[in-house]
Design a protein around this nucleic acid. Structure first.
Length: 217
DNA sequence: TAGGCCATCTGGTCCT
DNA sequence: AGGACCAGATGGCCTA
């Protein structure tokens, strides 16, 4: 096999490779179609060589560009996939952090061990109402203390101050709270008004009575 | 089996 | 560009 023939043969091999994904290459190699086999050799030798060669160079460049385009697309797809995986990972972590925060919130809410775990929405609603209830309790306690001070009950005031501030309202073991008391705050009901004003009033009165009936008074 | 809850994925939007 | 946040979609699990 002469060098020239070998060269042509190599070209035809390359054609076969690029023709798979390139329709324009078909048009370029049309004179030698249908198959760039033995006929193609005659084709290339017969035509004026420089023209064929420049066409080939052009074709090579186009093919090179397309190959790098394909490569780029593959890279972009890989990059996108990689970014998605990383984003999913971050999102998972974010949700885990959110859940940890909810767990922390649950842990400071007064529930009983045998209670079913509060759902997310229950936790948020309960926390909201619990804070409100504690605020109300404080307000009422302040009011009571103020009245007591006004009446000159200095001893009672001091005693109240020392001991009642230590009352742990949030403790499920608190003597004045029971499971049902706390259940009333998040007992099953309509989602929209799960913790009714009545429930909260009950809670406040119970909390207040707790303050009133602990060993401080 | 329907409905509720949850975890995860995904694409969009906004911000740095 | 990349990260945070959000909301919708989806599928799994559990319970009444």
């Amino acid at each position: 096999m002469s060098p020239k023939t070998e060269n042509i043969h190599n070209r035809s091999e390359r054609y076969v490779y690029y023709d798979v994904s390139d329709e324009e290459d078909h048009s370029l190699s049309l004179p030698c179609s249908p198959a760039p086999s033995a006929g193609s050799e005659g084709c290339l030798v017969r035509e004026n060589f420089p023209l064929t060669d420049s066409r080939e160079l052009q074709s090579k460049r186009q093919k090179g560009r397309r190959r790098s385009q394909v490569k780029n697309e593959v890279t972009v797809i890989k990059q996108k996939k990689n970014r998605r995986i990383k984003a999913n990972d971050r999102e998972r972590n974010r949700m885990h952090n959110l859940n940890s925060a909810l767990d922390a919130l649950r842990s400071v809410l007064p529930t009983f061990p045998d209670d079913a775990k509060l759902t997310k929405i229950e936790t948020l609603r309960f926390a909201h109402n619990y804070i409100w209830a504690l605020s109300e309790t404080l307000r009422m306690a302040d009011h009571s203390l103020f009245n007591m001070a006004q009446e000159g009950m200095t001893d009672s005031f001091e005693k109240f101050s020392k001991t009642c501030l230590m009352v742990d309202l949030s403790s499920p073991n608190s003597s004045c709270s029971s499971s049902s008391d706390w259940d009333s705050l998040y007992s099953p009901g309509s989602q929209s008004s799960r913790y009714s004003a009545t429930d909260m009033d009950d809670f406040i009165s119970q909390s207040s009575s707790c303050l009133r009936y602990t060993d401080c008074c």
